[in-house]
Design a protein around this nucleic acid. Structure first.
Length: 348
DNA sequence: TAATCGTGGGG
DNA sequence: TCCCCAAGATT
């Protein structure tokens, strides 16, 4: 058997039974592909069902509000994916008569769909001969062919795409692509792959050169920034609290949260709290500042603290989008996971 | 183009 | 505890 025959053989024997697999519905595949960007299958699965249930067809998605989409997306991270999906759903309804595109060039015009996702939908749904290169494929190709070019460099992206293009089975691109991805996910895993049962052991560069643990190469990532957030839980006598939709820039764009002061590490949170206290005209009972909760992101470390203010609704004039929301209704708003989890604990 | 965008699991 | 990184895209 040649490489591709071996790959398909392995795939048919080992592939997982996934709800978006083995169909050619571009909308359904699109849903899964966006959700699975930088996201593990186990983490994305419940969201796939949630979105398919809420929006069985692209028309339903297009009719949703951005707040509704972000609420459904809550907890999945990379929220721009959700906002971009809504734009794309509306464009598909407006410009494609509600028929989700399944060819590469049309797909690339849709926001939130890049090289990988366009190739995935085009090959899975449209049967088009476009090779996908995702993290799994990078790893597999890098190890098997012994390619040490960093996968997150411009040169690396070009080189790996070319290798994948060359390898693609143009007569069976959808299954070939899924097999490449699945092989990287299940067999050629990032950590501790079991090479003893690998069908490609004989031809694998990394296996024979003791490089499985060092490939693929990646250029060093930048240093992590630290940010310090002091959140204010402003509650009134009616069990309401102050929230606002975040701007479309910075972290958690478009989600809702409470008034927050960002400060530097050297700032003493107690001092900050006193300063904040002066912002309010009257002297209110002030809860102690909570211990910082560490929140580790890919490129940031957030240290989030909370302080509570009990106020009289009549004494506070809200403007600039700030609003009172009943604590019981918080679930209707899309909020950052760490904020929502904290509120759930505090409110109950 | 390099930086940015979340959350969760595993070594 | 800390670091990696996962079905990437955007600006």
């Amino acid at each position: 058997m040649n490489f591709n025959e071996e790959l398909i053989c392995w795939y048919r024997k080992h592939k997982r039974d996934l709800p978006w697999r083995d169909n050619r519905d571009a909308y359904r595949i699109w849903l899964s592909e966006i959700i699975l960007q930088q996201t593990r299958v186990e983490q994305g699965m419940p969201y796939f069902y949630k979105f398919l249930d809420a929006f069985p067809r692209v028309e339903a998605f297009a009719a949703a509000s951005e707040d509704e989409v972000l609420r459904l997306w809550q907890g999945l991270g990379y929220y721009s994916r959700g906002r971009n999906m809504l734009k794309t759903a509306r464009k598909v309804v407006a410009d494609f008569e509600g028929i989700f595109p399944d060819n590469y060039d049309d797909l690339l015009k849709l926001v939130g769909i890049g090289d990988y996702t366009a190739a995935a939908i085009a090959s899975f749904a449209g049967g088009q001969a476009k090779a996908v290169v995702d993290g799994n494929v990078y790893r597999f190709l890098s190890r098997y062919f012994g390619i040490a070019t960093p996968i997150n460099s411009t040169a690396g992206k070009k080189e790996f795409q070319a290798v994948a293009d060359e390898l693609l089975d143009a007569h069976n691109p959808g299954e070939h692509n899924q097999a490449m991805i699945e092989f990287g996910a299940l067999q050629c895993k990032p950590k501790n792959p079991d090479c003893s049962v690998c069908p490609f052991m004989a031809g694998c560069y990394a296996y024979h050169h003791n490089a499985v643990d060092t490939l693929p190469k990646k250029v060093r990532k930048l240093k992590i920034k630290e940010r310090y957030f002091l959140y204010h839980l402003i509650k009134n006598q009616y069990g309401e609290l102050v929230i606002k939709r975040r701007p479309n820039t910075d972290i958690w764009a478009g989600l809702y949260d409470m008034p927050v002061f960002e400060h530097s590490e050297t700032d003493d949170p107690v001092v900050i709290a006193v300063q904040v206290h002066k912002v309010f005209k009257k002297v209110y009972p002030l809860s102690p500042v909570s211990a910082p909760v560490k929140h580790i992101l890919t490129h940031q470390r957030l240290f989030v603290r909370f302080i509570e203010h009990q106020v009289l609704k009549e004494d506070v004039v809200l403007q600039n989008g700030w609003m009172w929301v009943n604590a019981a209704d918080l679930a209707q708003y899309g909020m950052p996971k760490i904020i929502f989890d904290f509120l759930k604990k505090v409110i109950n």
